[in-house]
Structure formats: C-alpha cells, structure tokens
Computed example of a mutant assay.
Amino acid sequence: MTTTTTTTTSTAGAAPAAAQDAPRARRARRALTPGRRLPAARLTGPVLLLALWAAASAAGQLDPGAIPAPWTVLRTAGHLWTDGTLPTDVATSLRRAAYGFSLGLVGGVLLALASGLSRTGEALIDGTVNLNRAIPTLGLIPLFILWLGIGETFKIAIIAIVVYIPIYLNTHAALSGIDSRFVELAEVQGLSRWAFIRQIVVPGALPGFFVGLRLGVTGSWLGLVVLEQINATSGLGYMMFQAQNYGQTDVILVGLLIYGVFGLISDSVVRLVERRVLSWRRTLSS
C-alpha cells in the first residue's frame, strides 16, 4: 500500500514538471532556429530597393540621364507594350530560354544519373563535364557560330550548356553523397537495383537536384541577355542593345527589370515545387 501511494505521488509530481519543461523546450528551440517563415519575405529586399530608388529620384539625388526614375521606366514600359514592341521581345526571349533550359535540364539529369550510378559512366562523363565547366561558356560563342551558324540554334545550344552544368554538378554530388549504409539496408531488404534507385537514390538526390535547378534557371536568363545581342532581330537583349546605341537608359532599365522579374518568378516557382516535393524533410528552412 505504501509503495503504491509513493509511486502515484511520484507520477503526479512528474506530470507538472514535464508540463513546465515543455514551454521552456519550445522557447529554446525557437532561439536556435531562424523562426517562423514570414509570408512573401523574399520580396522585402526588392521592395526596399525600389523604395530607395524612388526616394533618391524624387529628391534629385540621381541623374535622370543615367538612372531614370521608376515612374519614367514604367511609363516607357507602357509605351513599348502599347506599340507592340515589348510583347514580341518578351515572347521571343521566353521561347529561347524555354528551349535552352529544357535541353540543359534533360542533358544534366541524364548525364548525372549515368555518371553517379556507374563507375564506367563516371570515368567517361565526369572529367569531360568538369573540363567543360572550366572553359568559359560565353567563350564558346565564336566556335558555336562556326559550327551551327549565327541563327537561333547556337543561342539555344549555349543556353543549354549554361543550364546543364550546375544541374549535373549538384545532382552528381548528391548521388555520390548518399550514405553507403542505405546500400546495406537495401541488400538486407532484398531490393532490386530499380527499386533501390526509385526508393533511395532518387529521394536522396532530389535536394541537390533542386539546388542545381535553381542555378540553371538563373543561368538561362544570364546567358540570354548576352546572346540576344548577337545577330538578333528581336528579344529583350536586342531591345537593350538598340537602346544602348541611341542612349535610351530608360529602355535598358525596362529590359533589366523584366529579366529580374522573370528570374525572381522562376526561382520562386522552383522553390515552391521543391517545398512540395521535399515536404517529408525536416530542415531549418521548413
């Protein structure tokens, strides 16, 4: 009877203690982590930069000939859209970026899988890709013009090279970094090679793949702005090149802002897909 009473009292005393420790543990965890995710937090920096630009223009601190005010740039964008120039250039740039990005994405993933899952593939592919990475991609433009002509084909090919390299590198690194204990676990479970790839290799490589995907998306826009200034008759880069010849700074800023908006939107889409696909992970970001 005495033993039972003592046990009951001890249990009853432990419950309030555990209840008191729980809030303390949550506070300690919040102190160590970045905290709750804020809605549209990544827009804070661009909005603040835009506000500073507008304030400096309104105060007369910026030379309108060098850096026009935001409202001047918006008015110029409206004129270009109304006369039909901007829609055509935007559609052309989007088409080039989409074709090049698609080819680079498929090529990067296939090469990473062939190199990461086979020693023979690694011997044949990895060194070649790293050699390609060491060569400035834009330095290949003269050679590709001689090979493919000066039309659309060489532009798409250069964009594909810019895209596939980061996708390959990050996906291959993720494949190589999968813990070998998973191989032992798969052997114990009697998984076939296909089941091992589907259940262990692909989920383990997805975080690295999405990092490469984000870099590839950004790279497609960076390559496009240069390529569209070479023997082009339309596109945002062509529009900016023409504006440079006529000293139209506001038109150049319109092109740069559109590139920036496209880059931010595409990166946000990749982040959203990554968050949905990798919802099973518990990270600081989540």
Rank of each mutant, 00 (worst) to 15 (best):
G139R: 14
F144R: 02
I145G: 05
I167H: 05
V162F: 12
L146N: 07
P142E: 12
I167C: 07
A157T: 15
A157I: 14
T171I: 06
I150N: 05
G139N: 13
V162C: 02
T153A: 13
G151F: 09
I161V: 14
P142Q: 04
L143D: 01
L169S: 12
Y168I: 05
I158N: 01
T171N: 10
I141D: 12
I167L: 11
I167W: 04
I159C: 03
F144H: 07
A160E: 11
H172L: 15
G149V: 06
F154N: 03
G151L: 10
I156L: 08
F144K: 04
I159E: 11
V162D: 00
I141T: 15
I158F: 07
P166Y: 13
G139V: 12
Y168R: 02
A160K: 03
K155F: 06
W147I: 14
G151D: 15
A160C: 08
L169I: 15
I165E: 00
A173G: 02
V163L: 05
I165N: 01
P142Y: 08
P142V: 03
G151N: 13
I141P: 11
L148H: 02
Y168H: 10
Y164K: 10
L169M: 15
H172W: 14
I141L: 15
A173C: 00
I165G: 01
Y164S: 11
T153Q: 11
T171A: 12
A157G: 04
K155A: 05
I156D: 01
I161H: 06
P166C: 07
I150R: 02
L148F: 15
G139I: 13
I159L: 13
I161W: 02
I167R: 08
E152T: 00
K155H: 09
A157E: 09
W147S: 14
H172D: 06
L169F: 11
I156K: 05
I156W: 08
L143N: 02
N170T: 02
T153R: 11
T153I: 11
I167V: 14
L143W: 02
I141N: 12
I145P: 05
I158K: 04
T153M: 08
I145N: 03
I167K: 07
E152V: 02
I161S: 01
I159G: 01
L169A: 14
F144P: 04
L148K: 06
